[in-house]
């Protein structure tokens, strides 16, 4: 169970936001009450919230840091400049 999904909030949500999200989730009834209560409990406790943050949030930036994406400029030719040359074998 992903408590952030259940309460539809992100990992930076504070206690007040969590409580509001709990009330909203209870009204919307998209998830069982038990799951909403469990999500609330997990996110209101600092340690279990940190645990959930670790498990639920993935940061791919460590893979991106090593990459050196070089700019690609537009080529001189545009698609409209392409000329029909017929069957390649015929030249």
């Amino acid at each position: 169970m992903n408590p952030y999904k259940v309460l539809n909030i992100d990992q930076n949500a504070g206690d007040q936001e969590i409580l509001k999200a709990v009330a909203l989730a209870m009204r919307e009834r998209k998830y069982p009450v038990k799951e909403i209560a469990e999500a609330r409990m997990k996110l209101m406790d600092p340690v279990s919230k940190a645990v959930e943050n670790f498990i639920c949030v993935m940061d791919v930036s460590p893979f991106l840091k090593d990459l050196n994406v070089k700019p690609v400029s537009r080529p001189a030719v545009a698609s409209s400049d392409l000329n029909y040359i017929g069957t390649p074998e015929q030249g």
Partner: peptide, 9 residues
């Protein structure tokens, strides 16, 4: 990207 997230942002 790269902003880590849960898909709720």
């Amino acid at each position: 990207v790269p902003k880590p997230g849960l898909g709720n942002e």
